[in-house]
């Protein structure tokens, strides 16, 4: 049983960590959340059917991220700038020139910072859909919201993200 759990944990840990990372923007917090989710998975996994594992993981991860954000009392604010953002962003770009790659990486870092300022639940839906490539139905199941709500919130989330980026640009220029 332990072996099966280990396989499951190994299979899903990056998914959990990535989601927590983009929600919280802090490696230590994202690791804490991942660790807690995996411990809870161990306690519950005998009760979970295989197809329900991923929605369950996302549901629990999101709740723990929200708890963490509440504890910090920075629910909507930038938590911590990612000092390694530019280095860690391995943007999958076809851009041939180093200049274009740097530009893409800068854009990625800006988007990441802006994403953290998008309020919940829009942020989660944008992360799950755009970064983690979940289907609408899977997001609806994980967040326990109707399918249509996911679609509407995704549009709003993307728009809010663009608004934040615009604000960041205008703050930088003013």
């Amino acid at each position: 049983m332990q072996q099966v759990f280990e396989q499951m944990a190994a299979r899903h840990r990056d998914r959990i960590f990535t989601y927590a990372w983009y929600c919280l923007g802090d490696r230590d917090d994202a690791e804490d959340v991942t660790q807690e989710v995996l411990v809870r998975l161990w306690r519950h996994w005998a009760l979970l059917e295989e197809p329900k594992v991923v929605p369950w993981l996302i549901h629990v991860t999101r709740n723990l991220c929200i708890d963490t954000m509440r504890r910090r009392k920075t629910h909507r604010g930038v938590i911590k700038d990612d000092p390694e953002g530019l280095v860690m962003n391995q943007v999958a770009s076809d851009a041939p020139s180093p200049g274009a790659r740097v530009e893409a990486a800068e854009m990625g870092a800006r988007v990441e910072r802006a994403l953290r300022q998008v309020p919940e639940p829009y942020r989660s839906i944008v992360i799950l859909r755009e970064i983690q490539d979940f289907k609408y139905e899977e997001i609806a199941a994980a967040l326990e919201v109707p399918l249509n709500t996911v679609k509407v919130y995704l549009h709003r989330g993307r728009r809010k993200l663009r608004d934040r980026l615009r604000e960041m640009v205008s703050d930088a220029t003013s």
């Binding site: 990056d14 983009y22 893409a104």
Partner: peptide, 10 residues
């Protein structure tokens, strides 16, 4: 840019 953001390794 959003879709190019990488998964993070735990």
């Amino acid at each position: 840019a959003l879709r190019a953001l990488p998964w993070r390794a735990c």
